[in-house]
Design a protein around this nucleic acid. Structure first.
Length: 599
RNA sequence: CGGGGCGUAGCUUAGCCUGGUAGAGCGCUCGGUUUGGGACCGAGAGGUCGGAGGUUCAAAUCCUCUCGCCCCGACCA
């Protein structure tokens, strides 16, 4: 490919609309252009990378017996109504009508369509297992598209579905997919962690998310490099050192704390207490709804160690267990309003506490964090403005309704499964695999005859990879101030050959010859034959992120040499012209192998 | 859906408060010089100021409505 005829509209200036790095670089390096919110056109460079990612996926799917399909993106409503997800998917589903007024949608996933095919065509357990997949465009009407290719309304997904006769078969299929996913991400140059995840609207018994640590991510993940533990912070737990409370529980004592409103205030207050010796008392309200949409609220207290942050997700779970009433289900929790707090507690935020003797309402639910279990000689509010208690002994002085994990884990705390420490950070979901079980086969009545001749529902799994997210995540992970540093397996080209001045006939001829020899050697090469200044060509090449460059300049050429440049180290080495093609081919092969054999 | 911001040439933007000829840099075209990290000289092309309505002698500028985009939150297989 010759650069002069290849469409690479690089931008010198940063596009105003882009925020995250991958978005900026994809625009600047000429990979994508935006058509609308969350809708992007992939230009030739992006398409080349996407196709390479797809090819890696295909290889790994084939390796575990996957068969590629191509199913419709346009679906009649009936099949979604049959599974019940026509309503479950709500506003996230793009819907439309045909000329006759019949309802259709654009597929946001393909469980229904694959299951429909399976129920029509699969007859016998002897045909199982089946591993079916496709690489398809998905449509989701995201409430808030953002961050370039990271959260969009139209995107490419590899979605696979497995059909087994029993759950043991599903376990095997799931493990195969999981292993294949590890290979796919490793080959694409992504560091990832696997977390246990909620099955959400997909249903089913187990699921894993494949996450890449990047600040552009939307989830907070805690993980342990030593043992592989990883969890969303909505679920993650950790080991923390015990706090020494002294040898014996002292007598509880009320004392004045004028002006003290916060944990920090009390730390510095004369006669106060360290944050980890305080009990933080938060007033929350659980909101429950019944099927008619009627709402009920239940106030409760959440207790935490003074220096521990509350996890919204964890407190919601804990409250849901406690506050569900006949026909009502807790759907949300919120902090109580200041008036509500005063009505409940007789004091304002800053002087609140859960000590039974000072509680206005003795029946108030109290959920305490596990980190407080067994603690004594602690300090907390007295439910009397400007007063606190010291020497509070949790089990003696507070009537805890329920103990629960309420706190959010923090960077560097101990892994719950081993002796190492947790890493905490924002992460991006690049894949999600589910053990669906019987959910869809039952809903759609997809059965085969088992060995006893009885109809048995198919046991299913479903497995998704966000293709463009791999591209964007690779850029988030691999870039510098000059541009992208592509993992060679998914780079649009493996190498660019750059004569620094094409008006110099000798340089041009050398470039042409190296280019054609690399082509002959099977290298994926771009030839920069543009009549541009050297600075433009070199900056463009760094921006686009080709892993290697061969630079042919007048000075070195006179010595019979050209330069072999490595995008990551940004170092070049002088190589005799007669050897440079062989060297480049060897380096490229080496780089490809080291990624392809990773994981 | 709540909060905030922004729509002016292909890109980045000034002008808007205080109404009066729409400007710059980059990019683009032509000619010349130049060629190792986004050159220089000269000449040029390119703008319904997101859209509609209103106020006014006069609207990019003020008012109303509307569409679109970005960010934060809610939401999110």
């Amino acid at each position: 490919m010759r650069w002069s005829n290849f469409f690479i509209p690089t931008l010198r200036e940063e596009p105003a609309d882009a925020e995250v790095i991958s978005h900026k670089l994809l625009l600047r390096a000429g990979f994508v252009r935006q058509l609308g919110a969350g809708i992007y056109s992939y230009l030739p460079l992006a398409q080349r990378s996407v196709l390479k990612i797809c090819e890696i996926i295909r290889q790994e799917m084939s390796a575990i017996g996957g068969q590629e399909f191509f199913l419709p993106a346009l679906h009649p409503a009936e099949i979604w109504q049959e599974s019940g997800r026509w309503t479950v998917m709500g506003d996230n589903m793009f819907r439309l009508k045909d000329r006759k007024g019949s309802d259709y949608c654009l597929g946001m996933t393909h469980e229904e369509i694959f299951t429909d095919l399976a129920r029509r065509e699969l007859r016998s357990y002897k045909q199982l297992p089946q591993v079916w997949y496709q690489i398809q465009t998905k449509f989701r009407d995201e409430p808030r598209p953002k961050s370039g290719l990271l959260r969009v309304r139209q995107f490419t997904m590899k979605d696979a579905y497995t059909f087994d006769i029993d759950f043991a078969g599903l376990d095997k299929s799931f493990d195969d997919q999981r292993a294949a996913y590890c290979k796919v991400y490793s080959r694409c140059g992504l560091d990832f962690v696997i977390v246990d995840a909620d099955t959400g609207a997909m249903g089913g018994s187990a699921s894993n998310e494949f996450m890449v640590y990047t600040n552009a991510g939307e989830d907070l993940v805690a993980s342990c490099a030593a043992c592989g533990y990883a969890a969303n912070t909505e679920k993650a737990t950790s080991r923390i050192p015990a706090v020494d409370d002294g040898s014996e529980a002292l007598v509880i004592e009320k004392f004045p704390t004028p002006g003290v409103r916060t944990i920090d205030d009390l730390v510095t207050f004369e006669g106060g207490a360290a944050a980890n010796k305080q009990i933080k008392t938060l007033v929350y309200v659980a909101v429950a709804e019944n099927a008619k949409g009627e709402a009920q609220t239940t106030p409760f207290l959440a207790l935490l160690r003074g220096d521990h942050p509350l996890s919204d997700a964890k407190v919601l779970n804990a409250a849901a267990k406690l506050c569900n009433k006949e026909g009502f289900e807790v759907s949300a929790v919120r902090p109580a309003h200041p008036e509500e707090i005063h009505d409940l507690m007789n004091a304002h935020a800053g002087s609140l506490g859960a000590v039974s003797a000072a509680l206005k309402n003795a029946k108030l639910f109290i959920i305490a964090d596990e980190a407080l279990r067994g603690r004594f000689n602690m300090t907390t509010g007295a439910n009397d403005d400007d007063h606190h208690f010291r020497n509070v002994s949790i089990e003696r002085d507070i009537k805890v309704t329920a103990w629960a994990e309420l706190r959010t884990v923090a960077e560097g705390e101990g892994c719950p499964n081993c002796e190492a420490n947790l890493r905490l950070g924002k992460a991006l979901e690049v894949g999600h695999i589910f053990k669906l079980g019987l959910k869809y086969s039952k809903a759609l009545n997809a059965t085969v005859l088992n060995a006893d001749g009885k109809p048995t529902p198919l046991v299913m799994g479903s497995y998704g990879i966000g293709v463009e997210r791999i591209l964007a995540a690779a850029i988030e992970l691999h870039h510098d101030e000059a541009g992208i540093q592509f993992p060679i397996t998914i780079a649009p080209f493996q190498i660019v050959v750059t004569p620094l001045n094409v008006k110099d006939a000798e340089l041009k001829a050398a470039g042409e010859s190296i280019y054609s020899e690399l082509l002959k050697a099977g290298v994926d090469v771009l030839y920069d034959d543009r009549d541009e200044r050297p600075g433009v060509k070199l900056n463009d090449a760094d921006l686009v992120g080709f892993p290697f460059q061969i630079r042919i300049g007048a000075k070195k050429f006179k010595e019979g040499k050209a330069e072999f440049y490595d995008r990551v180290t940004r170092q070049s080495e002088d190589v005799p012209l007669s050897e440079i093609v062989a060297l480049a081919a060897a380096r490229i092969q080496q780089a490809m192998q080291s990624l392809n054999q990773a994981g």
